[in-house]
Design a protein around this nucleic acid. Structure first.
Length: 603
RNA sequence: UGCUCGAUGGUGUAAUGGUAGCACAAGCGACUCUGACUCGCUUUGUCUAGGUUCGAGUCCUAGUCGGGCAGCCA
């Protein structure tokens, strides 16, 4: 294959990958199959928060739009008001904008506020429709909604009835199930299957008018009750639901089902490539059937959308299922959808993971039809990699042990220069104060050290980073044998700028002045589950990690007192941390641990 | 027992009939004022059996194993 001529590979994210779907798009571009451009869509149902699995879909759909200078519509697939909620519309919108910001926001397809699809009369006077996107930069543009299309969808349904391709069925839910047959047994036709179109039309109009109770009748496609593909056995198109909708209010009491609404929503928006996950593979013939049965397009030459399926993300030690995530929230296993332990985009964001890290992670995975399980290490590597380059280094002690430098006076302040980020070409520095009393990490001291222990031990030396080398002279304990403090001497000739400053010692540890520091609550997060495949468990709530959250009171260098949630830090030798956007305040600092540093010694 | 999709190192993927490559993981080493980062080296792979071909991970046939599908959910 030759170079891609117009790929937007210039911008600084991960390079545009190749996969079987992008190959199809590329060939369509080459043959100019879609003169109006490439249009994809991301179609969440607002019945839960977006999670890391959705990130894969978002990056695929927006990535394809971006690489082809096309558009990816954000569309709420809101055809089941009973399960949906405005709060989810709000959170999903925010999450998509966050993931796409600075990367593909120009390809985000929105519609003008409150817009409905425009009616386009066909040659025979039939109504066709088109849902135009808002020009980029439209101030109050908003997401598309399938509920915007209820009127258009209804008009198409009447056409289907008139064409003898759909009928009103009076069978109950149980009867329909009984008539459907099984995987290896054909179904039986409904006694209402051959109702004349005029009667169907009358009944369907009365369904809409609210004359019948929930479940009394349905509109069904007339396809083939003996089809080996169950989704072709006269699938339901409309059901009666006397329930208010978060967008359309009480205007409707008949609501379209997914298979009917989705393909037509794609069509109305001019979507060219409708990309979904593997479980919809068997629905594709129905997707195509509906578009074909309506003989679309009626007005304006328009290429029909086509559906393509890929394998969704499965990540080890995590749950990627809105239903199960909702369960975690409802049963208070976590502190909400945006709990930093949750694999939701809101939780991941709050935990401190940059959007770019998520994007590199999911695009690096590739797109296939193979049902795989991705190791968590791949995700963690992407997070560390992004943070290593971006995060300012700071000194912080999570579990403090007091050290007294016996040869430093009580009122003495030795200023040290600490490097903000050694990864920078021209790293900046900041002052940190060394005083007589400091805290070190309890892990960095061992009275009885294991083999190859490089940290502080009886009679041993260690470097306090940026400050100088200290030697442990005395271990002070209380009457009960508990450690009170470590008494050390500072070798002043090893301070920065002093002649022995590059003297080698095996260990360098972090520290914080006991008198010039701030106290903070630090939340140490670990994986939420103890097994690689919690979803495969009979009860996934039984394999929750009891130690997924540990809260410590830490001491931080004074400069962290003004940290805001948009800043990412590396607490040296510990990991990456960020101020919690909900709970941290100047007078009560709260930090989240995004991820630890890799620790090859711990093994 | 129906239909449908899939199978490449430990994991995720690339190779579009022509040298099985990349990333992560793992192991060893170097460097180190972060046991991090970085760098070097190493281990490990085309599900099976036939066939087509000068040549097969790729094409064909059969098998094996795995996923998905029987909501008035999406």
């Amino acid at each position: 294959m030759t170079a891609e001529p117009n790929a937007a590979a210039a911008s600084a994210d991960s390079p545009a990958p190749a996969d079987f779907i992008r190959d199809v798009v590329a060939s369509h571009v080459a043959e100019q199959r879609y003169p109006a451009g490439i249009v994809t869509r991301f179609p969440p149902e607002p019945n839960g928060y977006l999670h890391i699995g959705h990130a894969k879909s978002i990056c695929l759909n927006f990535g394809i739009a971006r690489e082809n200078r096309g558009r990816c519509n954000l569309r709420f697939d809101d055809t089941n008001p009973a399960k949906e909620d405005l709060e989810y519309v709000r959170s999903i919108t925010a999450d998509v904008r966050w993931l796409v910001a600075g990367w593909a926001e120009e390809n985000l397809g929105l519609k003008p506020a409150a817009a409905r699809p425009a009616a386009l009369p066909g040659p025979g006077g039939e109504a066709d429709f088109y849902a135009a996107p808002a020009p980029s930069g439209t101030p109050d543009a908003e997401a598309f909604f399938a509920s915007d299309y209820f009127e258009a969808l209804y008009a198409f349904a009447e056409r289907l009835i008139l064409a003898g391709r759909a009928y009103v069925c009076d069978l109950s839910a149980a009867e329909i199930e009984a008539h459907r047959g099984t995987l290896d047994q054909p179904g039986r036709v409904s006694p209402f299957r051959d109702r004349p179109p005029a009667e169907n039309l009358d009944l369907f109009r009365r369904m809409r008018a609210g004359e019948f109770p929930d479940g009394a009748r349905t509109l069904r496609a007339k396809i083939d009750m003996a089809a080996p593909n169950i989704w072709l056995r006269d699938p339901l198109l409309y059901r009666i639901r006397h329930v208010a909708h978060h967008q359309s209010g009480t205007a409707w009491c008949v609501y379209p089902l997914y298979d009917y609404a989705h393909c037509l929503s794609d069509y109305l928006e001019g979507v060219t490539h409708s990309i979904c996950t593997l479980e919809f593979e068997v629905h594709r013939p129905l997707y195509d059937w509906i578009l074909e049965a309506l003989a679309l397009p009626l007005a304006l030459p328009r290429a029909l959308p086509r559906q393509y399926e890929f394998a969704k993300l499965n990540l080890a030690y995590t749950i990627v299922s809105k239903r199960r995530l909702l369960q975690l929230v409802q049963e208070n296993a976590v502190a909400g959808w945006d709990d930093p332990r949750m694999p939701t985009l809101a939780g991941i964001r709050r935990r401190g993971v940059p959007a770019a890290a998520l994007r590199t992670f999911v695009t690096g995975l590739g797109v296939t039809k193979f049902d795989s399980l991705t190791e968590i290490a791949v995700y963690e590597n992407a997070v560390r990699d992004a943070l290593n380059a971006a995060a300012a280094r700071r000194l912080a002690v999570l579990r403090p042990v007091k050290v007294v430098l016996t040869n430093v006076a009580g009122d003495e302040v030795l200023e040290c220069r600490a490097t903000d980020n050694p990864q920078d070409k021209n790293p900046t520095t900041r002052p940190v104060a060394l005083t007589r009393e400091v805290f070190i990490e309890s892990d960095d001291f061992a009275e009885v050290p294991p083999p190859k222990y490089f940290r502080l031990k009886p009679g041993g030396e260690v470097r306090l980073k940026y400050a100088g080398i200290i030697k442990l002279e005395e271990i002070v304990k209380d009457a009960a044998g508990a450690l009170v403090e470590l008494r050390c001497t500072l070798d002043r000739t090893t301070r920065q700028g002093e002649p022995n400053s590059d003297r080698k010692v095996k260990g360098t540890i972090h520290w914080v002045s006991a008198t010039r520091c701030v106290t903070a609550e630090v939340r140490l997060y670990d994986r939420l589950f103890t097994v690689p495949e919690p979803a495969a468990e009979p009860d996934f709530l039984k394999v929750l990690n009891p130690r997924s959250l540990e809260v410590v009171t830490a001491r931080l260098e004074a400069s962290l007192a003004t940290a805001t949630p948009d800043a990412r830090f590396q607490f040296e030798r510990l990991g990456y941390f960020t101020a919690d956007p909900k709970d941290s305040a100047p007078d009560r600092l709260v930090f989240n641990r995004t991820i630890t540093l890799k620790d090859t010694w711990a093994k």
